[in-house]
Amino acid sequence: MSKALNIPKLKHKDSGNFFILAGPCAIEGEDMALRIAETIKKVTDKLEIPFVFKGSYRKANRSRLDSFSGIGDEKALKVLRKVSETFDVPTVTDIHSANEAAMAAEYVDVIQIPAFLCRQTDILVAAAETGKTINIKKGQFLSGSSMKFAVQKVIDSGNDKVMLTDRGTMFGYSDLIVDYRTIPEMQKTGCPVVLDITHSLQQPNQSSGVTGGNPQMIETIAKAGIAVGVDGLFLETHHDPSTAKSDGANMLDLALLEPLLEKLVRIRKAL
C-alpha cells in the first residue's frame, strides 16, 4: 500500500483489498461507538479489509442552531482513543480550525479536513504539522484536478502522508452527483483516493434545515467506485440510522454492512 497508508494499527494491508474509513457520523456516546466499532472490526477481519474507525468528535457544520453538535470535545476524543485501544484499530476524525489540529492529533491517527474547508491554508498547514496522515475531502464546489493544490500545501508543510476523498459534487441546489472521472484524476497526485459513499448521497439545502439523503443508492455508488479502481471507501454507519443524531438520512444501516462489503470484495477480486 501507499506510504500515505502507513497508519499505526492498520491491519490486512497486504490483502489486496480496498481500505475503509467507517463509523458513525458523530460520537454520540461511548457505548454506541464501541458497539459500532466491534461490528465493523469483526466484518473487516473476516473479509481482510484494512479498517480505520471514523467518528466526528464535534459537528461544526450544521444547518440549524438546534442541531446536535457533540457530547463535548475532550469526552468524544477520549471515546475515539478507547475505541482504538479496545479493538486495536486506527481512528480518524475531522477538524474545523487550525487550533484543533494539535488537540485532535493527541487522540487519533488520521486528521480529516472537511470538504468545505479543503482550501483553507492555515488548517491544512496545522494538520500537516501534526505528522499524522491527512485525509482531505474534495470540496463539493471543486474539480478533482484542482485538489492537487491542497495536496501540495500539505507536502510543502513537511508531510507527504496525504489521501483525498471525493464526497460528490453539487448539482443544482439540493442534490449531489458522483463524477467517477474524479477518481483517476485525483489519483494523478500519487495519493490514495477514497470515495465517500454516504455523504455523496446527501440531499442538502432542504427547506426544513435538515439534510436529506438517498441511502438506497449506497450499494450502487460503492460498486461503481470499486469498479473504477478507487483505493478506499468512506462510509458512515449506525445500528439505527433513524435515531442517529447527525446525518441519519444518508447513513448505512449497520446490519447491511457485511453483505455490502462481501459484494465489493468480489468485485475487487474480479478486477
Rank of each mutant, 00 (worst) to 15 (best):
V265I: 06
N250W: 09
I136K: 02
T44Q: 00
V162I: 09
G131K: 06
M251E: 12
S143Q: 06
V154D: 06
M32C: 15
L195Y: 04
E38V: 12
E258C: 13
C118E: 07
K269E: 15
F116T: 10
I49F: 00
K75D: 10
A128G: 10
G158D: 04
T237K: 02
V89Q: 06
A76L: 08
P241E: 13
R81Q: 14
L65A: 05
G23S: 12
P259N: 11
G139D: 00
Q140F: 05
D122A: 07
I113L: 02
Q216H: 14
P184S: 07
I71P: 00
P215Q: 08
I177G: 06
D240L: 15
L47K: 03
V108L: 00
K148V: 11
S84G: 04
M170R: 12
T237G: 04
E30A: 12
A249Y: 07
A126V: 13
S2C: 07
D253L: 15
L201E: 14
D247Y: 04
P184Q: 11
H239E: 14
M186C: 04
A4E: 14
E48T: 10
R35G: 08
M147H: 04
G209Q: 09
H12F: 11
E219R: 14
L124S: 05
T39M: 05
Q203R: 13
E106Q: 15
A222C: 05
A105C: 04
D88C: 13
S242N: 11
G213K: 05
A4M: 08
Y180I: 09
R167N: 01
R167Q: 09
T198Q: 01
A249E: 13
I226Q: 04
P215V: 09
R266Y: 11
Y57H: 15
A26S: 15
V43P: 15
H96E: 04
D109V: 05
D166A: 00
H12N: 12
V265D: 10
I95A: 00
H238D: 11
D45F: 10
P215M: 01
K132W: 00
S146Q: 03
T220H: 14
I36M: 15
D45K: 13
R81L: 14
S84N: 00
R181L: 12
Q206D: 10
V125Q: 06
G131N: 04
G229A: 11
R119L: 11
D31G: 03
V125M: 12
L117R: 06
I177L: 12
K13N: 15
V193R: 00
Q202T: 04
K9R: 15
K54T: 03
D31M: 14
D247A: 11
H12Y: 15
S63Q: 07
K3S: 12
E85C: 05
F87T: 07
I136E: 08
Q202H: 03
A101D: 03
A270Y: 02
M147R: 03
F68A: 14
G190T: 01
D240V: 15
I218K: 01
I221R: 09
V110H: 02
I183W: 01
K138L: 10
L117T: 03
F149D: 07
P259E: 10
T121R: 06
D66W: 11
H239L: 13
L164M: 03
S15C: 07
D160F: 02
S69C: 13
D166R: 01
P114D: 08
D231R: 00
D156W: 00
Q112C: 01
G70V: 14
G248W: 01
D14A: 15
G72M: 03
Q120Y: 08
Q112A: 00
M251F: 01
A22R: 08
A128D: 06
